[in-house]
Design a protein around this nucleic acid. Structure first.
Lengths: 255, 255
DNA sequence: TGGGATGTGAAGACGATGTAAACGAGCCTT
DNA sequence: AAGGCTCGTTTACATCGTCTTCACATCCCA
């Protein structure tokens, strides 16, 4: 469990960190707001933030963080606050709102509830099937094997493959893939996902030429689904009384 | 948004329901705890519950519900409560804990936050495929299947179909369709919707010839409603290549 | 029967994707 | 510390599919 705390109230923060430490959580403390993207890059699970210290730009900042790091649990902790403020904060992307002073145990319990809620849903994604066609995906090795031979995937390549294979048959949008693997929102025009899919296809094909694993859904994203290639394998086939005009039927369902 | 409320505090409940109604949420009210499984069966998104009225078995009940309906957002609302109680409740599966009296707006904002976070990750997981006659519309694949075979719909085509099928039986005006799918207002004279309906009909018919799915309402718009074709072309005419535009007659029985 | 609405087909513009290569940051070896 | 490596990112260009638009045919309603 990784926790970020953005607050200048040293008393509150200290108590919180002590308690979190004893639970085995890792804490990172900020006294001034870092760029919103930083939370995403840090891979923390949750953020406890006192909006008061952010001043006038607090709402924008809150929204920024919630947008850039959609996987981040956000717990706002403030002194006095109005109902309208709390409603606004919760609508804007905060997952919980607590009022100081409060018992650190409760604060952490609420952080835990927020993170649990999120993990619960995403845990179903991570469970990858181990084998698909000639492919074997081994999470313990961060590697995929084609017919027993390693595909030499890099870490990112493996993560993309694991994600896609973990929801076999479902189309994942680039943005989803990026958020899951990279941990934060994709910048406009970023082609990283495409490039990694290409590398993946290349490596998978060289190890398992008879199968196609990753399919493109134009305008949407990619889908993992092992499919036997039917393409011209029999090259030297002499026509000699063969029935080559097999290419007629597909026209029926085409166009 | 479907909300269940388990509480006997009629004042609180009434205000909550009024506010929720005005947001367009559907509410279901309980004064006594139903079997935990019922919440799962009801397909509600969230449950607001006052533990006080559950008496001694409250904790067990809470845990039951959290276990049986893992997709349910649980917001506990009580009068006075101790830190230890709140911590226990949150650890046990509650997603949030609010103290009465509280502003209904805040209560609903918290419910919203809970459900939002939950949906975010699981949105694309539990989308039940929609089936209509020989058609199966799978949101997770951005694709429709006729008798198991993909119709090769493009993204826009799929979105139009999904929209129409989602309000099955209801006539949608072109302007409505355009705004929903394209996201902005249709320019005067734009025929895009018509063209897409045509492509859809074409692809659907080639995969499921015996059914008509999209009906035209002259001067109004389009309606999705699977209907068995009666013409059935009792023709012994061998199709001999592609059937010529024999699709003339069905127009007669249009509605 | 006429005029507007809708069906149908084709073609070009546009955006999305495939592909390859260059770049730079981090790491290991020397 | 310099050099060579791997990997991730970015850029550029080629290619391809899709969407829009237009023209014309056909149909419906007044």
């Amino acid at each position: 469990m990784q926790l970020a705390i953005l607050d200048t109230d040293s008393g509150f923060v200290q108590v919180l960190i002590n308690r979190a430490d004893s639970l085995g959580w890792q804490c990172r403390r900020f006294e001034a707001p870092p760029p919103a993207e930083e939370f995403a890059a840090m891979r923390v699970n949750a953020l406890v933030v006192d909006l008061a210290l952010l001043g006038p730009g607090a709402w924008d900042y809150l929204q920024d963080v919630a947008t850039v790091a959609p996987g981040l649990g956000i717990v706002v902790a403030t002194g006095r606050s109005s109902v309208a403020q709390r409603v606004r904060g919760l609508r804007m992307g905060a997952d919980d709102w607590i009022t100081k002073p409060c018992h650190p145990e409760e604060a952490l319990a609420r952080v835990e509830a927020v993170v649990r809620r999120r993990k619960q849903a995403s845990s179903r994604i991570d469970q990858a099937p181990v084998v698909a066609a000639e492919l074997e995906i081994r999470a313990d090795q961060f590697q995929a094997f084609a017919s027993g031979r390693s595909c030499d995937l890099t870490r990112r390549e493996f993560e993309v493959l694991q994600l896609l294979a973990g929801v076999e048959g479902k189309v994942l949008q680039r943005e989803e893939i990026y958020q899951q693997v990279w941990g934060y929102s994709m910048a406009h025009g970023d082609r990283s996902v495409d490039v990694f899919v290409r590398k993946l296809r290349q490596k998978l094909e060289s190890g398992s030429p008879r199968w196609r694993y990753i399919h493109t859904h134009f305008g949407v994203g990619y889908r993992f689904d092992p499919e036997l290639r039917e393409d011209a394998a029999p090259i030297e086939v002499s026509d000699a009384g063969t029935a080559p005009p097999a290419t007629v039927d597909p026209a029926a369902l085409l166009r």
